[in-house]
Design a protein around this nucleic acid. Sequence first.
RNA 1: GGGCGAUUAGCUCAGUUGGGAGAGCACAUCCCUUACAAGGAUGGGGUCGUAGGUUCAAGCCCUUCAUCGCCCACCA
Length: 862
Amino acid sequence: MDTVYDPQSFESDIYHQWESGGYFSPDFFSDDRPCFSMVIPPPNVTGKLHMGHALNHTLQDILARWKRLTGHRVLWVPGTDHAGIATQAVVEKQCAKENTDRHQLGRDAFIQRIWDWKTLYGSHIENQIRRLGDSVDWSRQRFTLDDQLVKAVRHHFVTLYNQGYIYRGKSITHWCIRCQSALSDIEVNHVDHSGSLWHIRYPLDTGTGSIVVATTRPETLLGDQAIAVHPNDARYAQWIGCSVQLPLCNRSIPIIADDAVDPEFGTGAVKVTPAHDHTDYEIGQRHHLEPRVIMDINGHLTGDIPSDYHGLSREDARATIIQDLGEYLVQTTDHTVPQARCYRCDTVVEPRLSKQWFVAMKDLVQPAIAAIQNGEVQFQPKRWESLYLDWMNTIRDWCISRQIWWGHRIPVWYDPDDPDTPIVCAEDPDDPKLIQDPDVLDTWFSSALWPFSTLGWPEKTPDFDQFYPTSALVTGYDIITFWVSRMMTMGMHHCQHPPFHTVIVHGLVRDITGKKMSKSLGNVIDPIDLMDTYGADALRFCLASHATLGGQDIRFSVEKVESCRNFANKLWNATRYLLRQPVESVSLNQPDVQTEEDRWIVSQWYATLESVNHQLAQYNMAAVTETMWQFTWNYVCDWYIEMTKSRASEAAPVLGWVLSQICIVLHPFIPFITERLWAELQAHGAQLPDKVIVAQWPTVQPSAIATELNSTMDLVLSMIRSIRSLRKQVQLKNSVLCDVYIAGDCVDQLAPYHRFFKQLAGVSSVCSGSCPGPHIPAVVLGCTLGIPITESIDITGHQTRLEQQTKQTKQALDQVNKKLSNTGFLNQAPEHVVADIQTKQHQLQCDYDQLMIQLKALSHNV
RNA sequence: GGGCGAUUAGCUCAGUUGGGAGAGCACAUCCCUUACAAGGAUGGGGUCGUAGGUUCAAGCCCUUCAUCGCCCACCA
């Protein structure tokens, strides 16, 4: 076995063994064990693994491996998403470098370019997933544009259309002038932007007087179709029904009254631009105003406007119009305006009137709402349910058409002679005269089907029968609305069952200061780099150790990964230590114990296993890492191995058993090293079955948990620590042995363990009773320790230390006494609490008495 | 404007039926002791954001405020 733990040297080989051996397939087991299934949140096919993936995948793989070990046929479906806008944008950028664009190339050629790109880079993300160790079934890998998934999406669309949930309509939608596409409501982010509020005077047609409106978007003035005021606003009541002159345009628009106007804001009068503002569109509908489109898909002015403004960008248009307004502009004030930005490219989004396809959501989501309300599906942590429900309860129609080329093309055709009658069908129609709708579907429209389309739906496949509904979904909270809600909705609708019963929601990985990792901030940590340096296991263990029940965001630090690598190293070296002994008799059968420390470590292990089982059942991965760290490092390495060094060969079966247990239980967290160590044990003759990935999860043996022994051992450990501490205080060199006198109640209890004092605390002989000669005293757990004074001992300051300890003990004692003299406490606190305090009081009193004696003796000596 | 989360040791964070304030890292001192210096031993360090309340007892329950972060929302 290599002296140095070098994860790079074996991780990929081990992954290959698993993958080629078929261990990731649920079909590895032919018996009728229960199924456990999950689908991976499909990453962008040409994307790159980031820390968010690493966390998300680690948590899923922990579940998958844990379930496999506890007797399930596990299916974890991998796959990738075509990620319409994002992927197209990347290839468009590439085209731009070659001074071409998609329009020059033409639709077919451009799409072919994206497919080429996908072929070139699509495997990157897959291989990065392999490096993380994900135990996904690659034989069932899916891509959202696979033929079968195209079939599913078309079936999905046609079904919803025929049921009346999908319709085509003209409406104001968010338009990204960079992506050149419509966006759904959740694809825009609202960001506060410090802008201005311009007050513009519109003269009344009567020639006398004028009305001043306040606007943050003067460039839309050219599309104004009315001025609106609140119906109850006394200031303007007299003018409702009159008309005003639209500056710069030489046309007249009416003054109308509408409830949507807030009389408190600005001047209480608002310009109405129905074609370029959501609220204005609604006002326009109520008042039968004709929307006037004045901006094209690039954000340039167009349409029926004064010719001077034609072709200006929206920014230039604003500047020009402000200048041209002259005396019509009466005031400009600073104002923070909420800007809608594209969530993909951060470009300011333009509300634009256009014809799009929509899904009517209100009725569709009802079963998905009920499934949460009746507890059929549960979020962990529970608080995310309210986000989900808020979103679902206020849901609006979903704009699903996108004016890009990469994606599922809408399965709708038109007869050029009758373009207003869509022909909706799942199969391409034969009639060559028909023209297919140029738009593609929102990527999330296909993602919504992922938990069942990947299993073969709409066909009734064996996989669908066995694995739908899936068992759990693991995701970050940022896509609850985008993805979880839609999978729930469509799963309930198409399959009559929710796509999963548990949604495990984790936080986002941020940098150490809490900022989002982003290229522009330069604070991105690449998980691949981390795995190169520290190994996949260290990264996984680190991420798992952050995955607490609260699902808080993670402030990620490389130092923590390093400490987790050190933990793996510790396990590596403990195994190396074991393998110096014969391990032929090591097996998964609980070993015969020879000594108290053997019995103790077995007992501690079962207690640990019991905790871990409980923590896993709650998905409290962070707690598991902590529990296992403590057991492995503190109990096994720091104490058990040290205690048994004098009888290493005899203890090997016990240590071997303990380490193999650790390997199984830690395998979901650190699969590579545990598989490697398992193989090392086997190679040295240990009787361990196959691979740890398919081992059997151990069972707690309650009868082996020895509570009394555990507390005795606690006492032994405390005593050893005290002796070490005392030795350190008197600056006794490690190489120098000393005698120790122990007096007090626990003397008899400690008698069988004196050998440990010699082995672990540099004690030459342990004597019972008080030290007769000059000595350095200490008091611990009601016992008195004494180290005889020799020339190696530095007595400086030990009186001060004793006084300090006395003071602290007195304080603690006073506190406890106060509690015990409180009748309220005695009468109302539970018995066991009172008993605990009484025990504590007794102990502190003993310590205190001893300390006083020691102090007195000391002053006597002086 | 509404909702949610956070505030505990220098840093990152645990602390779920209210009764012991904890971990890792960092720091200090000693030690290259044949598993491990990616290590061992020992030690220092916190009035648990603020102000009240409930209780025999509050980091934990209730209320106030403060600071930071996130989400939602048609105030032009």
